[in-house]
Every structure is written in structure tokens, then in C-alpha cells.
Write a protein that binds this DNA or RNA. Structure first.
Lengths: 346, 346
DNA sequence: TTGTAAGCGTTATCAC
DNA sequence: GTGATAACGCTTACAA
């Protein structure tokens, strides 16, 4: 006779089970289950008896058992490259707001911009039987792709518009955004437009931004100059350094497009230290509409990307697939809009 | 005869089970379980056969079933007041880094600074049978406290040092931090020290900061002046507004301690717009060492709080309790150190 | 509308 | 060292 002999002893947390509620209410466990999940399928007096028993006992349903039995879970896995990057938090919040309304829980992990790490996390999430995945990255190991296909879990990618989507996509196009800003600078008359990006992230998002920049230069009839492209690390200091380096190698530079993080603010501060007028000596443009850019002087021209909306929309599409079985959404790509916000710096 | 008649049909994701692996390897399911969880308890040749079968089939263990059966889970629930607040992301990362090493997953939710919302989230996490909880808030509804006690789940609170801890605590003291900074300003000779805080968060953290400020004024022999206390909303604009308001009501103000978010930077910008010299006309101090404060001019004096360490330490203590059953940690309070970082603004 | 029994995929227990 | 079996707490399927 395996397991505990005495069913009341040794139970962790002394948590009551459905059958305890059932006994207390003088009904079957099945009626308790129905009362809690489909109250309409139970007579009013039954419902009340059950709910009273639940309260008296302090019963908390066991989601593990419920998910196992029903073969459906209420958790969604989210993998971001970095947890402590303000860029992602808006998207996380959008996603969180949507799924919590449907009683879903978010599992979050960070991949550190590493596809192998991402694969491990995907595997871990699948063993937890998440009912959906949200991936910021659009590059994955073959094994990761295979596992996702096999698990038949709906997925949303939302950091870029990939050439070969895994499933659903909700994102802006990094290429198009960088293209738009570069064109903006070109139309303003800038001729030597530098481009700063983060060397820490050699992924398709960075590459697409660079491609968009080059594409715009071509359309503007400007000659690309490798010396105008600088790769830096993250943060304000890196932005300052980008200015220093590009001005050193190409003194005639007249605009700097910072395609990452808070680089633009760092660049602006450096110009201020040098006593340079922005945009007269050099124009500055940024890639994300963080609050700070509106409050520095001069205010900084940037791209507004609907990061919250991306999270919200991702959640909605995922839930439609999971709850409503909206198979028509399979493979759909939502290319969200973005705006160039012109301010004083360019 | 309930359930599916044909066990192979209708299975979501066509996911293989342990018994499929067992059949393939020509062993029992129990041996597969042992091979995966306690490889040392299985003969080498068995182990290899099992691992091969796992690979061939592409088997992914089912954590729901495992947790249900073993009555232990590998998820930890984290509740922060706000997901899109950079203050918390460092702590989240510290926690995430630690628990991922032990194969635990993080469930994250946001309470919106609302204890009732927090109670709902705690309940949800408990139904998911998380094996530990990390709460930023130190104020909870009586029901939330009762549920946690009943569930016997280890908890770490880490936003403040509460008078009555729920269980473990890893935090700095908001009172002591605000006291230290106010004393710092007082020792520098400032006599009319204003205090700005966020009106959106009427919680013990805000109250303790204010108490620390008052305590320091008393020790400095300075007369408290209600007009020197301003409550504002969040963000740079709010910081600017704080300056405007306090200067209007108390023109002789000579220092402003911004005890929240990026208020100090907003305040600094406002001073710059007014052409005021900081700290000569007015000194400015902040509450958190965000990167920006080191890069503005003048650089801003602030408090360095070990936010990453708090997350890391919280995770370690939680895991010790969960994995090693370290009961001696129950109720332990870790009052982490902080520093006043003196810079140019005060 | 309510109840009964089997089963979800794993692990604890005991027997070999 | 390995296997058979019951059990984890719940829901599906069907019967009453």
C-alpha cells in the first residue's frame, strides 16, 4: 500500500482538497468542481452551499492538478533579452495587463541576447506546459524551433518582423524605423549622417536597423562611409563616447542617429560639455521615445514605438488562440506603426 | 468507461509521456523517472538507454504532473507594485539570476500599489502552488496574511523593514535612508530642507521616508515646516513642478530632497531653465542611484541602494528554505546597507 | 441537476 | 538496481 497511510498527515501547508469541500457541503467533488468553474450548471442552493464550504475551509484550488487533468494551463511564458532594460518593461506591462484579465499568469525569464540560453528557457517553459509563448527575439536555434513546433504552442515574436516567422508576429520593423529616421535626417539636409548601435547585440534587430540606415542613404543619394558607423556599449557614457569617436574619425559629421537605448542622451550631454550647439554643429536623433528625451535641452528627435501596444496586442492574439481557438490567427503578422517625433535636436 | 478510449488520439501537442520513453527503452516508467532525477540510483547502461530514448522521442517532462505528485513545485511568485518602474528591475534581475541557477521559474505580477490587488495575486500564486513568494510591499490585507500563513509558504518582503514581518525580510530601511540623506544635507549647512515625495504611493515606504526626514530635522535642531513638504506625481515633469511649488511657498528654501523616482532630475532641469545655480541657489538630492544622476551637470547627490543584491539575497534565502529546509531562516530580517553618494548637487 | 469512475503524467512506497 | 502499484487533486465522460 504505497504513499501515506493516513491521508491527513504529512500534507504540506495543510491545504484542503476539493473532496474536503465536498464533504463539508455534503455533495460530490464533481459538484464542487462545477460550482467553481461553471456555476450556471449547478442549482443556486448547491452553489451557495459549496461557496460557503469553500470559505469556511479556506479552500484554494490546485491549479497544477486542474491543468494536468484538463490538459490546459493558464500560464504564458515570456522571454526578454534583458530584464533590467526599460525598453522591454512597457511591453511586459501591456502583456501582463491583458492576460491578467483572463486569469492567466506570466512566467518571465531573460535570455541575455543568447539563442542557446533562449532554447533552454523555452524548454523549461514547455515542461511547465505554458499555453503560449512570447519571444522578443526573432532568432532561435533549430532545436528551439523544433521543440516549439512539436509542442504546438502558439507563439508571438515581438522584437522585429522576421523573414520566417515562427507563428504570430506583433512588432514594428526595425529596418523601416531606421530607414524612416535616416530619411528624416536626409530631408533636413544633413549629408554626413553617422549611425551608432550597440555592439553587444549582434542580432537581426541591430542588423535590420543598419540595413534600414543604408537603404535610406542610397535613396537619399548619399555615399555610405564605414567610418560613420560606430558600435558602442550600453548607457549614457557610451553615447558620449560615440560622439567623441565619430567626430574624431569624421570631423565633418553633421548628424548622429543613435539606434539604441539611451545613447542619444549621452551624446547630447557630450555635445553640451563641448559647448556645441545641437543641431547646428551636429544633429542628434534617437530610437525610442523615453520620457527623458522630451525634458533635455534641446529636446531630442526620436522614434515613437508603440511598445505597450505591442505587449497588449501580443497578449490578445495569444489568448484568442488559446481560449477561443482562433486558428485563423496562426502565422499572422502585425506590422505596428511607428512615428518620427521631430523635436529640436534634428 | 470515461476519458478517451484511444490513448493516442486527441492529445494536445502530441507530447510524449514518461511511459512512452519507458517502452522505447524497454524499462519501467519508474526507472525513467529515476534516471532523470537521480541518475546515480540507476545503472550506467540503464541511464544511457533511457537518455537515448528521451532524445529519440523528444521527450519533455511534465512539470505539472511532477509537482502534483511530489507535492513540490519549482516556481516562485514575485509581486511588484509596478512592472514598468526601473527601480524594481534590478531586484527582479537579482532574483531571477539566482533562482534560474536552481531551475526555478519566476511568476511575476504587478499590484499597482494596491493591497487588495496584491491579495488577489497572492491567492492566484498560491493556487499555482508556488513554493515561495517575494513581495515588494510590506503592507498586506489581513486575508492575504492569513492565506500565506495557512499555505505555509516561505515569503520574503523586500521593499522596507516592516514592524511586523510576515516571514523573512531583505531590505534597506526607508526611514534610515531618508534620515541619512537629510542629515547629510543638514551637516552641509542647509537650513530649509524641502522634501518631495510621490502622492501616488501612500504606503509605509513613503511614510517611513517622511518619518526619517522629520527625525533628522529634529536631530539637526531644525524646525519642521509643512510647507517644505510637497507631494507630486511621477516623472521628470513632476520633479520640475516640485521645485516650482516649493519655491513659490517658501522662497528661502535652500535644499530639495526628492525621495522618489527621477524627481531629482526633473528638479535639476527646472533649476537649469531658471538659470539657477545648483547647489548655490538650491541643493538637490535624490533617492536612488540611477545612471542618469552621474551624467547630468551638476551631478546629483543620491542614495545608493543595493537593489540587485536585495533580489539576489531574497532568492538565496528563499531557496535555502525551499530546497534545504533551512528553518532557522524563518523570520530573519536582513537590513541591507546603503550609502549616501555625495556629488556636486549637494 | 448530480454523482460515479477513470484517467491526466508523474512520483512515493514497498517488494523483489 | 528495478519494477508494480497506488496516489497526488482535479476534470472528462457517462450514467442516473
Amino acid at each position: 500500500m504505497p504513499r501515506q497511510k493516513s491521508p491527513k498527515n504529512g500534507r504540506v501547508g495543510s491545504s484542503a482538497r476539493m473532496r474536503d469541500v465536498a464533504k463539508r457541503a455534503g455533495v460530490s467533488a464533481m459538484t464542487v468542481s462545477r460550482a467553481l468553474k461553471e456555476p450556471s450548471k449547478v442549482s443556486p442552493e448547491m452553489l451557495e452551499r459549496v461557496l460557503n464550504a469553500v470559505k469556511e475551509i479556506g479552500y484554494l484550488p490546485n491549479h497544477l492538478a486542474s491543468s494536468l487533468s484538463s490538459n490546459r494551463s493558464t500560464t504564458i511564458g515570456l522571454i526578454v533579452p534583458s530584464i533590467d532594460n526599460s525598453i522591454y518593461t512597457q511591453t511586459v506591462k501591456g502583456l501582463s495587463d491583458v492576460i491578467k484579465r483572463s486569469g492567466f499568469q506570466l512566467m518571465i525569464a531573460e535570455s541575455g541576447y543568447d539563442t542557446n540560453e533562449e532554447e533552454e528557457l523555452i524548454t523549461a517553459f514547455l515542461t511547465h506546459r505554458v499555453s503560449g509563448l512570447v519571444l522578443h527575439s526573432t532568432e532561435h536555434t533549430p532545436q528551439a524551433i523544433q521543440k516549439i513546433k512539436k509542442a504546438e504552442v502558439p507563439v508571438v515574436e515581438n522584437g522585429n518582423i522576421p523573414a520566417q516567422p515562427l507563428d504570430m508576429v506583433v512588432s514594428y520593423s526595425n529596418h523601416d524605423a531606421a530607414y524612416a529616421m535616416t530619411m528624416h535626417l536626409g530631408r533636413l539636409g544633413y549629408k554626413n549622417i553617422a549611425f551608432a548601435s550597440l555592439h553587444s547585440t549582434h542580432n537581426d534587430r541591430s542588423r535590420d536597423r543598419l540595413a534600414g540606415y543604408h537603404h535610406a542613404l542610397r535613396d537619399l543619394g548619399l555615399e555610405p562611409n564605414p567610418k560613420l558607423i560606430v558600435e558602442t556599449s550600453r548607457g549614457l557614457a557610451a553615447g558620449a563616447e560615440a560622439v567623441t569617436r565619430v567626430v574624431h574619425s569624421v570631423p565633418e559629421v553633421d548628424a548622429l542617429f543613435c539606434a539604441g537605448d539611451v545613447l542619444a542622451v549621452g551624446a547630447l550631454f557630450e555635445c553640451q560639455r563641448r559647448g556645441w550647439s545641437v543641431p547646428d554643429r551636429i544633429a542628434i536623433a534617437s530610437f525610442d521615445d523615453v520620457d527623458l528625451l522630451r525634458h533635455v535641452s534641446p529636446t531630442v528627435t526620436t522614434l515613437r514605438l508603440p511598445r505597450y501596444d505591442i505587449g497588449e496586442r501580443s497578449g490578445q492574439m495569444l489568448l484568442s488562440r488559446i481560449i477561443d481557438g482562433a486558428e485563423h490567427l496562426r502565422g499572422s503578422v502585425v506590422d505596428v506603426k511607428f512615428e518620427v517625433i521631430q523635436r529640436e535636436s534634428a
